[in-house]
């Protein structure tokens, strides 16, 4: 690396570095907008931009598989889930003046201080370190798949179990506990009613129908 340090000038960026920097700026800007915008749905959309920018950064770092996974999972499903969450919790459309809580300034102080400290440490540590992107591609699908199914099979399978557990957990949490009409399937009176029929639901103690609706969609 010292040889690499000698061959690279600090202020003579390559094309990849310039591209990384520009995309990084866009990503950072989108992230900042995500956390400061007062329109909740916009925040989710800016999050898409941020996550997409990070995917591009992965590409620039020659980790193409990760980049596509990032696009698929984050942009494809996580953000959609978040949007559903916003809608299900009746998040206001448009500007909501109380999106930030009262300790905004304290949070800002902590964040800026952390940033300063970490940036200082990181730049101090990696001042003379360069990544060699010209060698063999590190994150091609083939390379990733090989290593994943050669060396990381066991954690991979464990992770699948974790995902299953999370799925079950989400279902259990979303269910309405203690509702006799709902537990045990749709046999009782509630089951005969059309899904989404709001009028009769008013005289029931706690409506079970909408919960099913949400589960079907989630």
């Amino acid at each position: 690396m010292t040889l690499a340090a000698a061959s690279h000038g600090f202020l003579s960026p390559t094309g990849v570095e310039i591209a990384f920097l520009l995309v990084g700026l866009v990503t950072l800007g989108a992230a900042v907008v995500t956390v400061i915008t007062r329109q909740l749905v916009h925040a989710a959309l800016w999050l898409v931009v941020t996550l997409g920018g990070i995917a591009v950064e992965y590409l620039l770092l020659t980790a193409e598989f990760i980049a596509w996974v990032q696009v698929l999972i984050y942009v494809g499903s996580v953000v959609v889930l978040l949007l559903f969450g916003l809608m299900l919790t009746k998040a206001p459309i448009g500007r909501s003046p109380d999106a930030d809580s009262g300790n905004r300034w304290a949070a800002l102080t902590v964040a800026v201080a952390s940033a300063a400290a970490l940036v200082w440490v990181v730049t101090d540590a990696f001042r003379t370190t360069w990544i060699d992107l010209d060698g063999a591609v590190q994150g091609s699908t083939e390379a990733s798949g090989r290593s994943l199914f050669q060396y990381w099979v066991l954690p991979f399978e464990a992770l699948s179990v974790l995902l299953l557990a999370a799925l079950v957990g989400a279902i259990v949490l979303s269910r309405r506990n203690g509702d006799p009409e709902h537990t045990g399937g749709r046999k009782p009176a509630g089951g005969r009613r059309p899904v989404g029929d709001r009028a009769p639901a008013a005289d029931r103690p706690r409506s079970g129908g909408p919960a099913r609706t949400r589960e079907d969609r989630g």
């Binding site: 950072l28 940036v119 990181v122 730049t123 990696f126 370190t129 360069w130 990544i131």
Partner: peptide, 13 residues
Amino acid sequence: MHLAYPAVLAVLL
């Protein structure tokens, strides 16, 4: 590529 770029970007994010 300078390692500081992704590292600093990660820190800021």
